[in-house]
Design a protein around this nucleic acid. Sequence first.
DNA 1: CGCCCAAAAGGTAGCGCTACCATTTTTTTG
DNA 2: CAAAAAAATGGTAGCGCTACCTTTTGGGCG
Lengths: 343, 343
Amino acid sequence: MERKRARSGEIRLTEVAKLAGVSPITASRFFRNPQALSPSKRERVASAAKELGYVPNLAARALASQRTEVIGVLIPSLTNNVFSDVLRGIYDASEGSRYSIQLANTRYSILQEEKLLRLFQAQKPAGLIVTGIDQTAESRSVMETMHCPIAQIMEIGPDPVDMMVGFSHYDAAFAAVSHLLAQGFRRIGFLGAQMDPRVQRRLQGYRDAMKAASLFDPRTIVTTPVPTTVTLGGTLFADLLSRTPDVEAVICVNDDLALGVLFECQRRHISVPEDMAIAGFNDLEFMAAAVPSLTSVRTNRYEMGRLAVSMVTAAIDGNRPPNPVVDLGFELMVRQSSSARSL
Amino acid sequence: MERKRARSGEIRLTEVAKLAGVSPITASRFFRNPQALSPSKRERVASAAKELGYVPNLAARALASQRTEVIGVLIPSLTNNVFSDVLRGIYDASEGSRYSIQLANTRYSILQEEKLLRLFQAQKPAGLIVTGIDQTAESRSVMETMHCPIAQIMEIGPDPVDMMVGFSHYDAAFAAVSHLLAQGFRRIGFLGAQMDPRVQRRLQGYRDAMKAASLFDPRTIVTTPVPTTVTLGGTLFADLLSRTPDVEAVICVNDDLALGVLFECQRRHISVPEDMAIAGFNDLEFMAAAVPSLTSVRTNRYEMGRLAVSMVTAAIDGNRPPNPVVDLGFELMVRQSSSARSL
DNA sequence: CGCCCAAAAGGTAGCGCTACCATTTTTTTG
DNA sequence: CAAAAAAATGGTAGCGCTACCTTTTGGGCG
């Protein structure tokens, strides 16, 4: 009666089955698809499990069934408020499903992303959510070998790996710049930090909108690869002013920069919007509370996360959404900081 | 030659071993403890694994070894900047180790926390990080049955479940109020939102500091259970002013509220700090950039997350830190918004 | 009342890996 | 150089669950 191996000491399904007077496989079915049991057995298994305090062993389940109920999520930053909204949507949606989330941080590096995708491979996730559309070729090929539904989020573009939920950063920036132009501003600066691909596309939107108005001037673009902070917004704005003192408005790639510009204006006694209009991007909550309130581009980040999870889970269950690419759009929130030039 | 069951189609360890000309167990050891192999076999297994593109099956590993390399993390919010810093520390530290993070959101509910702990049980995590010290009795008993190192973070207190990394919210608030008193402010209001246990302890620190100066007046306390926003800071401040128009300073339980107060002061043309001093809590980055710059209590949240992971992983490996409770302290960042009353 | 078919339940055999020894090879040492 | 010790390697038998198939049960119907 030698026992070769130390048992975990936890209650196993077999023990629940024995107490309930059913076979292990019936008990197993109870936990996965209770409707398959007759009401009497269902009852018996339920009470046996409760009595013994049974907790299923997920590793054994995953090994036997060859699948997991994990959705892997790759995002570039944990600090950026933008992603915390997306994450909230993702976690909220996952709680309503039987899936759990495995989160990893790429730190804005597509090589790190590639490495993390390989790590995910070992977990055999049931689905995957990745940020952006600029994966390496290697990443793409790893994703393809994973044979699971994949949603790319934050932006939309051609050639989805599988599904996409996002919006056009180009269009959003174009719209914001067009608004400033419509308000009568001619010399419009552009401030950018953390120049990830989405920010690059916003810059392109700015560029094209300015060119369309024959007002493009490369000297009014100030960017840095450094991560965004409010303080940095002030610094970049100072740079911009020293280069082109005649700017009348600035569009910032995010709201932190915009707030930094507002503070810098206050410090220099530049009145907003009379002497300087400001527009941000993302519409964080503080934009409406600022004095003056700050114009921004609102995007539905929470919904983006929520929808990504629900599209992925639907696809896992075989209900692939008819349209794999969802454009969630954006909304320009016009506020005091960009009100019309009164000449 | 009937095959009963569909194989996954992935490369297995056995296949790597065969190609390398070693036994499966030797190949297994290569992935867990390469030094145990002779250099020649190590080489052979490495190249075989590479050639076949072998990816280990984590579920099988977890089942066979009866343990995982997962650290469960429970935090109350994904939106609050405070936790994103902690999370960054946690994820950064985990990348240096062989552990991966399983994150769950309790939404400030200890019942939700209890439910999530039960979910974690099924995963048999190697370690656990939980926020705060106010778990339910049931949660505590679940944690004890998990037999893994556990770190409570964000604050310190008596009776740790296992280990703790944090600081005293009471002391921090007490220090901030003492500073305002030392600057000559007498009528000091308190603004609080999202009244979680840590915020309650800050309130207690305020109360005791004011009482010690014989200046306590319950009418100058304005709190709400609603989640924090910048806008809410303005609203609460307006409430405070309508109740006690003679307040000279406000201490806010977090920086978002403080920023809201600043904006509300700007809106009402109340000059800061001449007519109203402001102090916040957490020292988010924008506090130093604001005009005027805003006083706050700096806490080392990134380090808190990092240290929690390293203490837990050390404990898993049997190197339990000598002192299980680490007080990371705080630092009062005195800025323009609370400079001395010039009478 | 027997027959047929669907629903419910059970038996068996792995899923891919590692713990636990036993065995072989190498190194050390008197 | 043989014996003992240490290091490297291998064989076997599960870890706890579920896929796959077979058997049993129940119920409708001629």
